[in-house]
Design a binder for these strands. Structure first.
Lengths: 142, 142, 142, 142
DNA sequence: GTGGTCTAGACCACG
DNA sequence: GTGGTCTAGACCACC
């Protein structure tokens, strides 16, 4: 369970946690019945306030992804993998759609978009090999 | 000058206005010296708070895209087209980068991403022909 | 909009707020489109922390009862009355069920239960006329 | 001694145990001098943490309902039946009061409340005969 | 002015 | 040990 929080890409931390837990479940990095790191532990790892993690976990409970096991923590529900897998691409698609729509409605051609996508994919793949944990210095809006 | 505000796609309204004015300048839909609609008129068109338009125009002045003409309103500066053209793809790239990074760091494969992109591009193109809420291709651009 | 928070009846404050807003909508004490008191104002009235009110309002947004109007506050959605009316008795029923189940499974007879109910109803009605700690000023159309 | 724990009806498990032991004493299902099941046995039956049972028994000792018999376990005290009988309806009344108060202060009419009560009583009575999830009457007249 | 996010820390309930 | 609630207060973004 390694999460990658970006100190601000416009998405609130609690939601980044939320999304990434869902991705982890979809990817089987988190198995059914497995406990998610405790609020305090996760907060320590990410160097964020426990309340922030708590809120993310609360949202995940509301989404039926986590279930509280009294006194022991929060576990992945049996229904979670199905939910998360079906959501997996949607979570990305929804964000992508907004970006592409702006481009499209402002006369960026499909080919220009494809070129941007390829160049960014290339960049991400090189980052991985080089190491660069947080190369993106940009901000969504400020 | 038709702008397309989305009630909330995560980007503040004033910035949506700002970006779209820049795109319009880059696309020559707004010519040098041409006046931008007055704050009140634009606010009426978009059904947003005049303060919001005002803020966008302020930012555009700070960016050197607009310049106040005493008593008549705000006009596109001579330097604007160059600035806006060079920014054109960067504005999109910055947003795109954030989305792709999330996908990448969560085990979405490059091919899945490409597929999402293509399906969204297809969707956007059909929207235009089918119901065309925003007839971007309509004009002139010589 | 007078809410009656009980310092602790076992139900968290934010949920008491949540439930009572729903009741108010169901009772037409809160009309569609009407703004709910601001977080800070409500917090002042109830003498609770603004975050507590904020959480209640957040839950109400998630439930589709409130919708944020940028910069101006939170308004009752058009769908809210239907939702709240249909929930009105359910909210009570769910709590009631738990109490009655305990009684029933522990050999309290139906008649004893009815007697308790009547005596408590009587008590509540006299409270209102005698010292009325919470003079429900609402307006009952039906 | 069959107890009926509900995973979460808002009342902590230890208190559910506590209350139900009291009801059992009041109902003579538990006689003076009789031993209550051991912590481990009860914990096994209810599938709860032994600490939880332990806490319930501790509270019952504090209430003078149980008394430790060296080396053998916990027995019902001679004073218990009187105490429990007098508490019997109060335990229910206190919970009922909170529910009815909420209903009353939110414009639920007395008649609506009575109707809810009757429908829930009916429901409970049919449950017993139909599928009996909790066969309190134990023996099947079938 | 509005709500939203985040931090910090106290306290409680439960196991 | 776990999570949940609540308080307090800072800071931000938006209108």
């Amino acid at each position: 369970m390694r999460l990658h929080i970006e100190a601000s890409n416009g998405i609130p931390i609690y939601e980044q946690i939320c999304r990434q837990v869902k991705f982890a479940v979809a990817n089987r990095a988190l198995q059914v019945g497995e406990h998610v790191p405790s609020v305090r532990e996760m907060a320590g790892q990410l160097a964020v306030n426990p309340n922030t993690v708590s809120r993310a976990y609360r949202d995940l409970q509301a989404a039926g992804v986590l279930i509280p096991i009294r006194g022991t923590g929060l576990a992945v529900t049996p229904e979670a993998p199905a939910k998360c897998k079906s959501e997996r691409l949607d979570l990305i698609r929804d964000r992508l759609r907004l970006v592409l729509a702006e481009a499209h409605y402002n006369q960026i051609t499909d080919d220009e978009i494809r070129q941007l996508v390829e160049s960014e994919l290339h960049r991400l793949n090189s980052d991985v090999t080089e190491n660069s944990p947080l190369p993106v210095t940009t901000e969504e809006h400020a």
